[in-house]
Amino acid sequence: MLRTSNRSILVIEDIDCSIQLPDRKGTAPAKFLESKSVRDPMFSLSGLLNFIDGLWSCCGDERIIIFTTNHKERLDPALLRPGRMDVHIHMSYLTVDGFETLAANYLNIHDHHWRFRKIKDLIKCNKVIPAEVAEELMKSDDVDVVLEGLVRFLKRKKMEDDETKDEVDDEVHEAKKAKIIS
């Protein structure tokens, strides 16, 4: 970390699970203690906090640290406080506005007759992440081909989600029925 230069961006992916950080009292999580391959016994949450607060912030300028996590609640509150993490961005499922931004950025279009309406309707009833749609938008230079492919993708995803929901509903129904019988 000390070798990073000015105008650097440091990204620590999945901070809640990619590195096992002992807490500030020096107590490691159970998962950390069970691991036989401790990567760096000198690396601790306290050390990371000191680094963010002191060395890195005072040695140069224009540095950004990005932490990603799927479980913000697992992070020590000391790491989340302002001054250490100044901006928290929740990345959720794609919205209609998000789709319009992706279409403008990837395809340089702002409307496309019936396909936009159909895509927007499918996005409203689907849980799809922006990266999945971006991947679909990069598959061809032909706008019509891309949008038709996106419609097929969203329909297929909706069918899969509906099937999964039906399976869960069936399991819940069977569980309730078993409970009533016993």
Score class of each variant (00 low, 15 high):
L2D: 15
L2P: 02
R3L: 12
S8Y: 03
S8N: 12
C17A: 14
C17Q: 12
I19G: 00
Q20I: 04
P22V: 02
P22S: 07
P22Y: 00
G26V: 11
T27P: 01
A30F: 08
E34Q: 05
E34A: 13
S35N: 10
K36W: 12
V38I: 15
D40G: 05
D40V: 10
P41M: 15
L45C: 03
S46Y: 00
G47H: 02
L48T: 01
L49P: 01
L49H: 00
F51C: 03
F51D: 02
D53Q: 05
D53P: 00
L55I: 11
L55E: 14
S57L: 09
S57P: 03
S57I: 05
S57N: 14
C58A: 13
C59P: 00
G60S: 12
G60T: 06
D61Q: 09
I65N: 00
I66G: 11
F67T: 10
T68Y: 09
T69C: 07
H71D: 04
E73S: 10
L79H: 01
L80A: 04
L80R: 15
L80W: 06
L80H: 07
R81W: 05
P82E: 05
P82H: 13
G83E: 05
R84G: 04
M85R: 07
V87I: 14
H88L: 09
I89R: 03
M91W: 04
S92W: 03
T95G: 02
T95H: 07
V96G: 05
F99W: 03
T101M: 12
T101I: 11
L102I: 09
A104E: 12
N105L: 05
Y106V: 04
H110T: 14
H110G: 15
D111N: 14
R115Q: 13
L122G: 07
L122A: 11
C125Y: 10
K127L: 08
V128N: 02
I129G: 10
I129C: 10
P130G: 05
A131M: 09
E135D: 14
E136S: 10
L137P: 01
S140A: 08
D142L: 07
V143F: 01
V146H: 00
L147A: 08
L147C: 07
E148L: 07
G149L: 04
G149S: 13
V151S: 01
V151W: 00
F153Y: 15
R156H: 13
R156G: 11
K158D: 03
K158P: 00
K158C: 08
K158S: 07
M159C: 14
M159R: 14
E160T: 11
D162E: 15
E163I: 08
E163R: 12
T164C: 13
K165C: 05
E167Y: 05
E167N: 07
D170F: 11
E171D: 03
E171K: 15
E171V: 06
V172W: 04
A175M: 13
K176S: 10
A178M: 09
A178Q: 11
K179E: 06
K179Y: 15
I180W: 08
